[in-house]
Simulated assay, not measured.
Amino acid sequence: MGEVPHYHGHRQRLRERFAQNRDIVPDYELLEMILFRSIARGDVKGIAKELIARFGSFAEVVAAPADLLQETKGVGPSIVHDLKLIEQAARRVAHGDIRQRPVLASYAGVVDYCRTAMAFAEREEFRLLFLDKKNGLMGDEVMQRGTVDHTPVYPREIIRRALQLNASAIILVHNHPSGDPTPSRADIEMTREIVALATPLGISVHDHLIVGRNGHVSFRALGLL
């Protein structure tokens, strides 16, 4: 008989530990269990730990671009496929949750959804949430994509789109790939310009959220709206 591999029984032990208490499983072990699906046999702990070390967290691994994921030894198309499946599932779960209730009655859900959708993107994105008179979500659109530190925003195009959808209110959202959600002077001035255009037309700007790896900022909470 050959020597038993050190990882023998590891998968079953990990599954049992997850079944007993899902909340205590660290990121790399959660990632391991995803990799079990992609790699039928063998030790995947090293791959999971290397991915976490490179990208920082489970969420950042799942959101990482496919080409960068495949730079990690052992990561092929099947693993990328499963990670992107998890990413899309997370977005749809978050999005589905805020569609069930008036947006402003589940604001934590809005923040969670925006962080899931944008916080780990490598380029800046400017997103709009369009709300009806009951603050229900009518639409969710990425209006612009930019570079690592800038997204061109056209206030008149934003108002035009809100009018097309007959939205009563909007929430502005964009991400800072640097991780720091602190608003810049340009962010503040752009927001004021949008408010100035929207208010005479009866469109409320409920908030401007900036999301990043290190958290989020609300313009309304900061007194900027």
Rank of each mutant, 00 (worst) to 15 (best):
G202P: 04
E29T: 06
K45G: 05
I203D: 00
D112Q: 15
A221N: 11
R192K: 15
R156P: 05
H208R: 09
D97H: 08
V93Y: 11
D43Q: 02
A105C: 12
L209S: 00
V211I: 07
A90G: 06
I210Q: 00
T72S: 07
I188H: 06
L163Q: 15
P5E: 14
A89C: 07
I98G: 00
D112H: 03
R145N: 06
L222F: 07
R13V: 11
A162M: 05
P155C: 09
V211E: 00
G146A: 05
H81V: 09
G74I: 12
I79F: 04
N135E: 07
E60H: 15
A94V: 04
D207W: 02
L128F: 07
Y154K: 09
Q144N: 11
R22K: 13
L201T: 07
A63Y: 01
R54P: 09
R127V: 06
S106K: 12
F120L: 14
V25K: 09
R160A: 13
G9E: 06
G223W: 05
V195S: 12
T151W: 05
D112R: 05
R127N: 08
E141Q: 12
L51P: 05
S218T: 07
E157H: 07
V44N: 03
Q20G: 09
M118E: 03
F18A: 04
V205L: 13
D97C: 08
V25R: 04
I158Y: 04
H176W: 04
Y113A: 02
A48Q: 06
F219Y: 08
A64H: 05
I170D: 02
G215Y: 05
M138S: 03
V103I: 10
